[in-house]
Amino acid sequence: MNPCGDLLSDLGVGVRKIVFKGDGFALAELAAGDLEYLGEHGDGAYDVDRDGREIPIECPIYRLAVTTEDGTELLGHVMWHPVTYGPSYGCLAWNFGRELLPRARGKGIGTAVLKAFVRHLFDTTDVDRIECSTDETNVRAQKSLEKAGFTREGVLRGAQLRKGKRHDLISYSILRTDLKKK
């Protein structure tokens, strides 16, 4: 129980329910206004262009906040959605993205957040594959993914449109069985 809960709500800061507590961070449910705050305080370094066309499929996007251990300070967020490689549940995977605010980067929590997030998804769902991709120039993210146990799979040529140019992404994945090997 947060003794400052009412005070935080009065100040316009949402009280977040913590899902997982790590060393120096927590994964928590997003509070009202969190996405707007992230948008205003992020640096947009890898934001993709919006071209006005709607994506012709609808799939749910799930999100958790990355916060300080007590859940009061927003540090970033993780988001994930299902992707499928065939007509059965066994072909289902989670594709995710992670964004830390500039002030939260370089403090060693990125890899810990990835490990906790992977554990959370494998503990709370039956999906056996988690995947993501990162810009080919984002070497820090690539190193973090590899430290968290992800396997580099290859290059997704021209997969994102940013600032009017196509950018290659590096794809990564981790399987439930990979965790058992360690």
Rank of each mutant, 00 (worst) to 15 (best):
S144V: 04
F117K: 05
V155Y: 02
L114N: 06
F96A: 00
R157V: 08
Q160T: 12
L175C: 14
R119Y: 08
R176M: 02
G158F: 09
L121N: 06
R152W: 09
D168A: 10
Q160A: 11
T151V: 15
R103Y: 15
G149P: 10
L169A: 10
T134F: 10
T177D: 12
S133R: 02
E153H: 01
G106Q: 04
V127D: 03
A116N: 06
G110P: 02
I170T: 05
I109F: 03
L121P: 02
V118K: 04
Q142T: 05
A116F: 09
G149A: 12
V127H: 03
Q160K: 13
R129N: 05
K143A: 13
I109D: 00
T134L: 12
T137Q: 14
L161F: 11
E99D: 15
E136P: 06
K147F: 11
Q142C: 13
S171M: 03
R166P: 05
E146Y: 09
G108H: 15
L156H: 04
L156T: 02
G108K: 15
E146K: 14
R98M: 13
H167L: 13
A93H: 04
W94A: 02
H120Q: 10
W94L: 07
R157T: 07
R98K: 10
E136M: 10
A112K: 15
T134H: 08
G158R: 12
K107N: 14
R162D: 03
R140Y: 10
A148S: 12
T137I: 14
L100E: 01
K107C: 10
T124V: 07
T111F: 04
D168I: 14
T177G: 03
N95P: 01
V127I: 14
A159W: 03
N138H: 12
T125R: 08
D178A: 06
L121C: 14
G149V: 00
E99K: 10
L169W: 04
R152Q: 08
E136Y: 08
I130T: 03
K143M: 13
F150G: 03
S133G: 12
D135F: 14
S173A: 08
L169T: 07
R103P: 01
F122R: 01
R98N: 07
G106D: 09
T124I: 10
R129G: 01
